[in-house]
Design a protein around this nucleic acid. Structure first.
Length: 446
RNA sequence: GCGGCAGUAGCUCAGUUGGUUAGAGCGUCGGAUUGUGAUUCCGGAUGUCGGGGGUUCAAGUCCCCUCUGCCGCCCCA
């Protein structure tokens, strides 16, 4: 501790056992994205500040880490999300590439907020977008990717769900309850916060928007019936509300069933999302008990690319951060032990003869063959101690060098079975290579 | 930006109404054991008690400020 430096507020340090956890998440994001036909893109980790103010207004600045280079005139901001960067890339790419483009990105993002559970100032986020497809196939591609990813993390329907909504459908529900068009935006904002408010507080804020006790009771009934489209329509019918307005949401139901995704999706008009640029479908992934914040969120933003100077291009996308996902996985006991995913040495070289030159040559040969090889820094030739260290390093094999060095044979010990046999030094690398890598850092599924 | 709780060794924590030289477990390092594994035994090291100021004969302990963490509000891309 001492008088040293601390990591800045809201940031994390990653020791080996921590970093491997983060990479475990990122590996799955990347692999499932590629499985679903998405291609990885990235951009700078900082952009012109105006890219964000154009999209979200000047109020966004207080949520950003923005800066001006000493002596410079340009204002920059660390990226708080990938969508504006994607929109910027797309603005030029749509003119020269076949549409739709399916893109994903993974990387660090930064927000100037007070850290709290599930929210940090720096975090890793996965972003996926379908650009240039105005049809609901874009939504289906994304929801399929999302469900496939949740599944890949060992999550199941009933533990987490994709709450699916559509702004036009929500608007129709609110209109049918008597909210005037001029108040719709405000009603969206209120609805977005409803779950965090007491019923009394909600009623107080809802009254000026045209929602009295009767209407709120109806709204509650509709929200409570979130689930299947049938349940929603039946509830609304019983309340005498017109269900035609739900059509933009309803027409996703059959294709979702056809794709085998209905178990993952909850049709929920309570989801509106705060962000002003969403134009149609919106969705969030939540833990079903309501624990933690949203795991992911997204929707359709058909105007944004045009707004940022590109040709008017329909687009739809979502983002998922590593913080809330990590908490949910932790809560459900779905995180692997770090030990199980840290890289394992294929071979730990033990110097029992004081021939450090021979050790170095052997390490070079093993590493040259693509193997993960380590040795001890200890000067002791106590083989018992060194084997203990090899075990602690979780090595698959130990190679024990005698004082004859590379001229003699090497004792190769299988640290799991305990079997030991002499092997000619020149053959060790090839022999170990045929046994496959113990290293589990890379791309295994476990 | 606002509020509540917390901060003692690398980690988890103990430390009496303020009272000599601040402790334990785990971990780490070394030895027991000069060539065969996670156990066991022995030994060593590490603290500006988060930082600064104040009260007092005396502060880890009380007061103020500040930093960081956790929880919530605001906001949430």
């Amino acid at each position: 501790m001492a008088a040293g430096f601390q990591a800045p507020k809201g940031t994390r340090d990653f020791l080996p056992e921590d970093l491997v956890q983060r990479q475990w998440i990122e590996d799955r994001w990347r692999k499932v994205s590629i499985n679903h036909g998405f291609e990885e893109v990235d951009g700078p980790t900082f952009e012109h500040l105006s890219l964000y103010t154009t999209k979200s207004g000047d109020g966004i600045v207080s949520e950003l880490f923005s800066f001006r280079r000493a002596g410079g005139d340009d204002d920059y901001a660390l990226r708080p999300e990938l969508t504006p960067t994607v929109a910027r890339l797309a603005a030029s790419a749509v003119r020269q590439r076949p549409l739709p483009m399916r893109w994903f990105g993974i990387g660090p993002f930064f927000r100037g907020e007070r850290p709290q559970r599930g929210r940090l100032r720096e975090f890793q986020q996965w972003n996926a977008d379908v650009i240039g497809d105005p049809s609901m196939n874009a939504e289906l591609d994304l929801l399929s990717l999302l469900a496939g990813t949740l599944e890949r993390f060992g999550l199941r329907p009933g533990e987490v769900t994709i709450r699916l909504s559509h702004r036009d459908a929500v608007a129709e529900v609110l209109r049918s309850l008597g909210v005037p068009d001029a108040q719709l935006h405000e009603a969206f904002t209120l609805l977005d916060r409803k779950e965090k408010m007491t019923p009394e507080a909600f009623a107080e804020k809802a009254a000026p928007l045209g929602l009295q006790a009767d209407e709120i009771a109806k709204l509650d009934a509709v929200l409570l019936s979130a689930g299947t489209t049938d349940a929603l329509c039946q509830t609304m019918g019983n309340l005498g509300l017109d269900t035609n307005g739900l059509e933009p949401l309803l027409h996703l139901a059959q294709p979702l069933r056809d794709a085998g995704l209905e178990d993952w999706v909850t049709f929920d008009p309570g989801i509106v999302r705060g962000l002003a640029y969403y134009t149609g479908t919106v969705f969030e992934v939540h833990e079903c008990q309501g624990a933690e914040r949203a795991i992911a969120g997204g929707g359709r933003y058909d105007e944004l690319i045009g707004l940022l100077g590109g040709p008017k291009t329909p687009a739809c996308g979502f983002a998922m951060g590593d913080v809330v996902l990590g908490l949910v996985l932790e809560n459900l006991g779905r995180r692997p032990q770090s030990e199980a995913i840290l890289p394992r040495p294929d071979c730990f070289v033990i110097d029992a003869g004081g021939r450090s030159d021979a050790v170095r040559q052997l390490l070079r040969a093993l590493r040259g063959a693509g193997l993960h090889a380590r040795t001890s820094v200890k000067t002791t030739r106590n083989v018992g101690k060194l084997l203990a260290e090899a075990s602690k390093n979780r090595a698959r094999f130990a190679a024990i060098l005698s004082d004859e060095g590379l001229d003699g044979s090497i004792e190769l010990k299988d640290l799991e079975s305990g079997e030991q046999r002499p092997v000619a030094s020149g053959e060790l690398a090839a022999l170990l290579a045929t046994k496959g890598h113990a290293d589990n850092s890379g791309h295994s599924d476990s």
